[in-house]
Simulated scan of single mutants.
Amino acid sequence: MSALLEVSGISVSFDGFRAINDLSLAIGERELRAIIGPNGAGKTTFMDIVTGKTRPDSGRVLWGEHFIDLVGMDEARIARAGIGRKFQRPTVFEAQTVEENLHLALRNPRGPFAVLFSRRRPEDAARVAAIATEIGLAEELPRLAGELSHGQKQWLEIGMLLAQEPRLLLVDEPAAGMTPAEREHTTALLRRLAEHRAVVVVEHDMEFVRRLDCRVTVLHEGRVLAEGSLDHVTSNPEVIDVYLGR
């Protein structure tokens, strides 16, 4: 499997605290990967670096077939390059309908004239309908986003990211606050999305990670502590000591 994203020798410190410590890892195309680890392990900082929110002190973040170094690029340019990030708390336009949220997110021209004089094209409506079906909200298109359940808002935000046609999705703790049925739907959704793009899931819930049935990377003190199947990493004595407990 060729690497779509390769993080190489990344380090970053905040006020003398080494949040990321010579971190190297690679994500393949159409790969589903879970990243776990204790609080302070560097999971969020890793995503901040990949998306351009935080600039590392050293190292490279190579992207795509042409090995573009994302370090130093701004967040908007990185998003346009094909990296989408979903934060733990869903951020949708609650006063707009599900359909309107998805239309607003479509990867269309964004200039002032394009916005002022835009008309909804048939192909846009078809794309919105396809995304709504993919995320399980086809029946909710006319509803206001603010009326959706927590889990449905999470799916809508994932749909809004899909509208940007990303090649990599970074998803932060998607199972938090969900009902069992919503968690099951989310598991199936993420597995399905990874058939066509790379999906990286940061999660604390081990049962949710087990259901994802994917390669797992364990971070600790800003570096990779272990990597492999969930059974492999959870049997690692170091992982047990620093994260799972005995």
Rank of each mutant, 00 (worst) to 15 (best):
6 E>L: 10
9 G>W: 00
13 S>K: 11
15 D>V: 04
16 G>H: 02
17 F>T: 13
17 F>E: 04
18 R>Y: 00
24 S>W: 02
27 I>D: 02
27 I>F: 08
30 R>K: 15
35 I>P: 10
36 I>M: 15
37 G>I: 05
40 G>T: 03
40 G>F: 03
41 A>R: 02
52 G>F: 14
55 R>T: 13
61 V>M: 02
65 E>A: 14
67 F>W: 10
67 F>H: 14
67 F>Y: 05
72 G>C: 08
74 D>F: 14
74 D>N: 15
77 R>N: 11
80 R>W: 12
84 G>Y: 07
87 F>Q: 13
89 R>Q: 13
97 T>I: 07
101 N>E: 04
105 A>R: 11
105 A>Q: 07
108 N>I: 15
109 P>D: 07
111 G>Q: 05
122 P>M: 09
127 R>I: 01
127 R>C: 06
130 A>V: 00
131 I>P: 03
131 I>T: 03
134 E>D: 12
141 L>N: 09
145 A>R: 10
145 A>M: 11
154 Q>I: 10
159 G>D: 11
160 M>L: 05
161 L>A: 03
162 L>G: 11
162 L>E: 12
163 A>P: 09
164 Q>A: 15
166 P>Q: 01
174 P>Y: 06
186 T>H: 01
187 T>A: 15
188 A>Y: 05
188 A>I: 10
190 L>E: 07
191 R>H: 04
197 R>A: 03
202 V>I: 15
208 F>A: 09
209 V>S: 03
212 L>S: 02
216 V>F: 09
221 E>Q: 15
229 S>E: 06
232 H>S: 15
232 H>I: 10
232 H>P: 04
233 V>N: 14
234 T>R: 15
241 D>G: 01
